[in-house]
Simulated assay, not measured.
Amino acid sequence: MLVVVGGHTRNIGKTTLSTQVISAFPGMQWTAMKITQYGHGICSANGEACDCATADHTVAISEERKRDSGTDTSRMLVAGAAKVLWVRTQQGELAAGSLSEAMPRLRKEITAAENVLVESNSILRFLRPDLYLAVLDPTVADFKPSALRYLDRADALFVPNGIDLSEAAWQDIAPSVYRAKLVFELREDGLSPDADAWLTSRCMPRMPSVA
């Protein structure tokens, strides 16, 4: 199974949802991937100065092995992923080209894995997942073009703190784009019971109980 977790902007809970899915279904033996864009020494993951840009300014892929770094990829490892990859691509319009360069390696990893979870919107340009989960925070006005482009493909929306989507601050986005979607609350303490049940119904097996 291939699951993609996306969101309309940064710092709205994409990694929180990713880690919750991973930890809720450990029997899936997840290979997790986080795709980050970089540019001009500023990381688009948090808007702060960073060193995640690659030496040749195209693309880089590395495997996360540390469980105590506190990074998003480390959190995926702690959540129970069997393998975690961090993919760095160029920012803006160049991202599609550099991600395209990375796709042969990523397709190999996907083929070899039992199940895959990718945190990214841009990967949807190249892959059609079994499930696409989108995190939307109605209180944050910024909406990435890549998120809007694929929003109609979302199987379910996850909204932090149970905020009503009718309170959305997105002036240029028609409510009809998201109004008919299945919506779950994104909680800090794990998947909500209804989200857990729905994901289980979508062929995510549980670990057998230990007597």
Rank of each mutant, 00 (worst) to 15 (best):
R206Y: 05
A45F: 07
Y178E: 01
N115V: 02
D172Q: 09
P138R: 04
M33T: 03
S74R: 03
W170F: 10
V3A: 06
L85G: 02
S44I: 01
R67Q: 03
P129G: 07
T15D: 01
N11M: 03
R88Y: 01
I35H: 14
P104M: 07
D189L: 14
A156R: 12
S120N: 05
N121G: 01
D142M: 09
P205M: 10
K108Y: 02
G7S: 02
P104A: 12
L17F: 06
A156F: 02
Y38N: 07
A147M: 10
A180T: 11
L85P: 01
R206L: 09
K108M: 03
E119Q: 11
R88T: 10
D51F: 11
L151K: 08
T71L: 13
G7P: 05
D72Y: 03
R128I: 12
S62M: 09
R206K: 14
E101V: 06
E64G: 08
K144Q: 09
A156H: 03
S146G: 02
D152L: 06
A169M: 12
I12R: 00
V87F: 04
W30A: 02
T16W: 01
Y38Q: 10
R149T: 08
A147H: 08
G13C: 01
E188I: 10
L151I: 09
S100G: 14
R105H: 08
P138I: 05
P145R: 09
T200R: 14
A53T: 12
A32M: 02
A156Q: 09
K66D: 08
S98M: 00
S192C: 10
R105F: 08
R149L: 12
D68T: 04
F126V: 11
W86F: 11
T71N: 08
L2M: 06
K34Y: 11
S18F: 07
M33C: 06
I173N: 04
I42A: 00
P193V: 07
M33G: 03
P129S: 05
R128T: 14
Q171G: 10
R128S: 12
I123V: 15
N121F: 03
P129D: 05
R65T: 06
F25M: 10
A180I: 00
R75Q: 15
H40T: 02
P193R: 15
G80I: 06
A95R: 08
A95I: 01
L131G: 00
Q171I: 02
R10M: 11
I22C: 03
E114K: 09
P129E: 09
T36V: 15
V140P: 00
A95S: 13
E64L: 04
Y178K: 04
A24H: 06
R149E: 11
